[in-house]
Design a protein around this nucleic acid. Structure first.
Lengths: 201, 201
DNA sequence: CCAGATATGTAGTGTTCACTACAGATGTGG
DNA sequence: CCACATCTGTAGTGAACACTACATATCTGG
């Protein structure tokens, strides 16, 4: 099988750069010119590798969720529902104000509302957020089975709640909230999960 | 003083239509063509009246926050911090899934991330969200003075928290969450405020 | 009824956008 | 070394964008 000329850039490294541009400017706000410059390639290379702008976004999202997936696994490994919530929300306070990345969360910054021709981008992002929520829900179902959560607790509602707080924190971070402010939000938010937790024996 | 030809459209009615377009598509996603069609006017009328696209957004935001301000006044009129939070978050569950409006909140949908040339739009929206947060904080300061909130409670943190949950609910609503899902989130969220409330005498 | 002022509709403007044609470069299999 | 396949850089493409020039229409004050 003929191989042709090998590509001169590393796809994952380029994706990391593209991810940052989408993260900072959103899907619609990011231009191909910005993306190619950040990636260090020219438009034909981008299109040959990722298809089109939306394909590039999806590839960037895949990479983002893959990296986040490792962290989420650590989150749900906490021993109680309360600790899961705390680990997640406190971790988000750190990550979303990490100067190494743009503020906020790519799954929010990517695009909440889009114009004609990009209507499915918000849905794409929502689907990825829903994955996190599902993972949380599964963990809370187990917490309830363990007697860690009260009998009256609704694992799905709790997961939706934690997910909603996470999104809200992301928006706050992107509009300039500092780490301490996010920690305060996380701290208050955890108390709602605590209120659903069974009393310690 | 010479008056000239009177304008043939009602500015507030036109603004309501523009508001809906921004709400549904975001600032960058909304095009002048969509806006003028929804407003029932031609571009020159839009520019003569509102200056430019960003001026139109600000006018629409003014109208939005004015309408919301009336409702926020009712929210903070609740008798306890807990009831303020409940009234606000349950009200948001209703409003953000009201079929009369696009889902979610204009202050979020308008634009979380924007491209070059519109960088200040997200800040403009954040400033308006901060106004709500300030109003909540003032109310919670009073609640603490009243002995309604615990001595250990941080009114600013609580306000930030409720504000963050509100934003998160807005994002969820815009990505298809139904009213019941939002009510569940609100219900859980209120419990964190309850945990900060003083025990009833 | 006239002069000045403002609004309107038509029909554009230049710019920027996502995307690509094409020619040359660089690899592999025979 | 040759045929072929794939990548790369240059230099565009048409379309969509925010915005506007201009002629015309409709008002007020005198």
């Amino acid at each position: 099988m003929r191989m042709g000329r090998p590509r001169e850039f590393n796809a994952e490294t380029a994706l990391d750069q593209a991810m940052e541009v989408f993260w900072r400017h959103g899907y619609e706000g990011a231009t191909i010119a910005q993306l190619t410059e950040a990636m260090g390639i020219n438009p034909p290379s981008l299109y040959a590798c990722f298809g089109n702008k939306e394909g590039l976004l999806k590839a960037a999202l895949d990479r983002y969720t893959k990296l986040r997936g490792v962290w989420m696994d650590e989150v749900v490994a906490a021993s109680t529902a309360r600790d899961v919530a705390e680990r997640m929300l406190m971790g988000i306070a750190e990550k979303q104000t990490d100067p190494a990345n743009p503020p906020g969360c790519l799954l929010v910054q990517g695009g909440i509302a889009c114009g004609t021709g990009s209507e499915n981008v918000p849905f794409e992002l929502a689907a990825r957020r829903a994955q996190n929520e599902d993972q949380l829900r599964d963990r809370f179902v187990r917490a309830k089975a363990d007697g860690d959560l009260k009998e009256s607790a609704d694992p799905a509602a709790l997961a939706r709640y934690v997910s909603a707080v996470a999104v809200g924190m992301g928006v706050m971070a992107s509009s300039g909230a500092d780490r301490e402010a996010l920690r305060q939000v996380a701290s208050v938010a955890v108390q709602a999960v605590e209120a659903q937790s069974a009393d310690r024996a």
